[in-house]
């Protein structure tokens, strides 16, 4: 019983740390960088002012990728501890 519990605890600890990392990246690209949008606009990215680009497209792309990364890693964690669903 003890071993099973600690496995579950480990699973949750890894899930929590993955989620924390995802949320840090999320914070940076959803809010953090936009405090500096004005400075970013002095740089250009394939023709776009960078601050405008991030808000109109860049951050959106990052969000999609971020969820895919989260899913892939979480599925690995679930399999590692044998708590993935049977298919």
């Amino acid at each position: 019983m003890g071993a099973i519990m600690s496995d579950l605890e480990q699973h949750w600890a890894e899930t929590r740390s993955l989620t924390t990392w995802i949320l840090i990246v999320w914070f940076i690209f959803s809010m953090g960088i936009f405090f500096f949008a004005d400075s970013l606009n002095s740089m250009t990215f394939f023709g776009w002012p960078l601050g405008f680009y991030m808000a109109a497209q860049g951050s959106l792309v990052i969000f999609v990728v971020l969820i895919v990364v989260l899913n892939t890693k979480q599925e690995k964690i679930d399999e590692k501890y044998g708590v993935a669903e049977d298919e």
């Binding site: 959803s30 951050s59 959106l60």
Partner: peptide, 21 residues
């Protein structure tokens, strides 16, 4: 302009919260 793009960022970034939390 740029100010309105906050809606775009918010209405997409929210899904990271939906997926993770």
């Amino acid at each position: 302009g740029h100010g309105y793009l906050a809606f775009l960022v918010g209405w997409t970034g929210g899904y990271v919260l939906v997926a993770s939390l």
